[in-house]
Design a protein around this nucleic acid. Structure first.
Lengths: 158, 158
DNA sequence: CACCATCTCCACCAGTTCAGTAGACATGGG
DNA sequence: CCCATGTCTACTGAACTGGTGGAGATGGTG
């Protein structure tokens, strides 16, 4: 039974987004400790620390050490998209056969296939680039996204 | 450097779609041999045979043995979507943390996150479910998909 | 200064998946 | 009977996933 899906949000990406959401909701109250984030979101602490360290290198969070230490967002929650977070921990959003879609060439019958992969990526971006952390924690998703998510069809396994 | 992306079309899925496209373009001229498909699309023969065998079990192709054997589509090319093909070789189109998006629950700050994943999947389906094999080999993608693919923005790595 | 809390970095690990490859076998036609 | 094709099971090396462990750096506090 294959476990690799066309769209696969890994545990790491999922944790990264949830940790960032936690930081966004705690913004303004000083740094939040790794341990608090881990508790709040049910994430293994050491794994979370690894992820936060990647987010720090991507300059999405700032960190402080010592007894009053912890993490905080490096910029306003409305200026951080989910795509920013996922790219920071997983590299490019989309790939085909380990290559970016715009770099492929197809022969013969499959010539238009590249356009399809490009369209898939565009539609993925249309969600992940427009949803910001402040949208997420405020529970107020952009209208287009909200429309997609409230369509009952979207909830069926098909 | 991580190689796992949010959207990842594996070699297997890519090969499956291309092989089906080849079969679609050869429809009506009798079965096409594995070897011909492999040559036409540059796919390792034995790997392709594995894939075709999965497509057969999913009843997307029919096969014949012997000197005049080969493969052909099990139904009309316009009645096979790319989503059908990808699901046949890779299971569900989308998953989060190895689970279907509609089965997750998030706590606290990330409560709306489920809606985001649902929207992502919906937008993925909006491409892969509507493009049929006959659209693909005819080079005539549905208008919505064409619009996505011709937007220059969609071609930038960003 | 010592001490404690916190983040940081590197290394490692078990299990799974990916992308194939190998080879024996089934079956159709001549 | 022979040959060409598809079918099935099994294997493999490399990479990735989802972590864990431990030493060390760096703050603040007494």
């Amino acid at each position: 039974m294959p476990q690799n899906d066309a769209v696969r949000i890994s545990a790491k990406a999922d944790y990264a987004v949830r940790a960032m959401a936690e930081l966004a909701s705690a913004a303004g109250t000083g740094p939040m400790k790794g341990d608090q984030i881990a508790q709040a979101q049910g994430i293994p602490l050491k794994f979370l620390l690894n992820i936060l360290s990647e987010l720090k290198h991507a300059r999405l969070v700032r960190s402080y050490r010592g007894a009053e230490g912890g993490y905080e967002l490096a910029r306003d929650a409305k200026d951080i998209s989910l795509a920013d977070i996922i790219r920071a921990v997983e590299g490019p959003l989309a790939s085909v056969h380990e290559v970016r879609p715009e770099e492929i060439r197809y022969e013969g019958a499959a010539a238009s296939l590249q356009d399809v992969w490009i369209a898939v990526r565009a539609n993925l971006r249309a969600v992940l680039e427009v949803v910001s952390l402040s949208d997420l924690v405020g529970g107020a998703l952009p209208e287009e996204v909200r429309a997609l998510a409230t369509n009952p069809e979207a909830w069926s396994s098909h």
